[in-house]
Design a protein around this nucleic acid. Structure first.
Length: 311
DNA sequence: CGCTTTTGACCAGCGC
DNA sequence: GCGCTGGTCAAAAGCG
């Protein structure tokens, strides 16, 4: 199941779960933009399904989905609470190494430590506050063949490697890339195998492309592509309120493709990530979701019937 | 021949 | 001030 995969990749910074099932959430969680867009993407499917069954049954299905969404929302709140308790712990070193995801400024981006030095459009230091234009940092996890030594993440953009370095916390080398499609494009990418799982590549994108994607394939894992909500089934974590969004209405990312984790750079959440990635947490979460969705045989039956009618 | 990749050197930030 | 670390530079090598 996708969620199991998402948990496996939770080495990034998951904090808040928001599972979209294509229905308007009773109380939408804060990072609305992406969720809203993904819901919009999902609605045509929902409409088709609803049209395929009698109105009464459709309402029943919708009510059950709403109930499942509510269940998911409670899980979201639980995880958000966990995050809050984590952040509340003072840790000077971690604060320096990982600036908090801002709820001020644009509320989207995280900030490169060398904000003003690397990018002229980010002239203000972090402490300058509200007017600081922060560099967007996103993270993409991709499952690859462990034997594959190339640190290549196919994201639709052209990259030029300009350096490689072995870092202290990971025996695998980290590769540094610049966007090669447009010379003026400020985007940089760091790619490194996960320390925990060598079959997982972690690509960190800094900045945003100032040009169109050279291929439509770029809709897959880049930050820009994700922001359009073009990935129907994804896990994303944004820095304004780290969120995992699982769109159950489509299955586009299934089958071992890329998993997008757009994350605040918050090493101080690593412990939380490990907790979330733990088998106990994953099992409990999956059981909650599975029970909410499948406890009623009528629901699964109607769902199957609706799908069959689309074939 | 031009472009890309590799890799050692260099630089800047930070902690001690 | 020194050492450590991450990030970048740039010359050399590789490749089509």
């Amino acid at each position: 199941m996708l969620l199991m995969d998402s948990a496996r990749h939770a080495g990034c910074s998951p904090v808040c779960l928001d599972l979209s099932v294509g229905l308007p959430s009773p109380t939408p969680s804060p990072p609305l933009r992406r969720d809203t867009e993904m819901e919009a993407d999902a609605r045509p499917d929902r409409i088709r399904v609803a049209a395929a069954v009698p109105d009464e049954k459709a309402r029943t299905l919708e009510a059950k989905l709403t109930q499942a969404s509510e269940e998911i929302r409670r899980l979201t709140e639980t995880i958000a609470h966990l995050k809050a308790s984590q952040i509340a712990r003072p840790d000077k070193k971690r604060e320096r190494e990982s600036p908090e995801p801002s709820n001020s400024c644009d509320g989207i981006s995280n900030t490169n430590r060398k904000c003003s030095a690397d990018h002229a459009e980010s002239p203000l230091p972090l402490r300058a506050g509200a007017s600081c234009k922060r560099i967007k940092v996103s993270r993409v996890c991709a499952r690859i063949d462990p034997a594959d030594t190339t640190l290549a993440v196919k994201d639709g953009y052209q990259w030029r490697k300009y350096g490689q370095k072995v870092t202290r916390d990971n025996p695998s080398p980290r590769a540094y890339f610049r966007c090669a499609f447009a010379p003026s494009c400020p985007v940089k990418k760091k790619v490194q195998r996960s320390a925990e799982d060598s079959s997982v590549l972690v690509a960190t994108y800094e900045g945003e492309h100032n040009h169109a994607s050279p291929t439509r394939a770029a809709e897959l894992p880049t930050s820009c592509g994700m922001r359009t909500g073009s990935v129907p089934c994804s896990i994303s974590i944004n820095s304004s309120g780290p969120t995992i969004t699982l769109d159950l209405t489509k299955n586009g990312a299934a089958g071992g493709g890329l998993r997008v984790l757009e994350a605040a750079e918050e090493p101080d959440l690593k412990k939380l990530c490990r907790e979330i990635a733990s088998p106990e947490f994953r099992t409990a979460l999956v059981e909650q979701m599975a029970s909410a969705l499948t406890s009623d045989t009528d629901f699964t039956g109607e769902l199957a019937a609706a799908i069959l009618q689309q074939l």
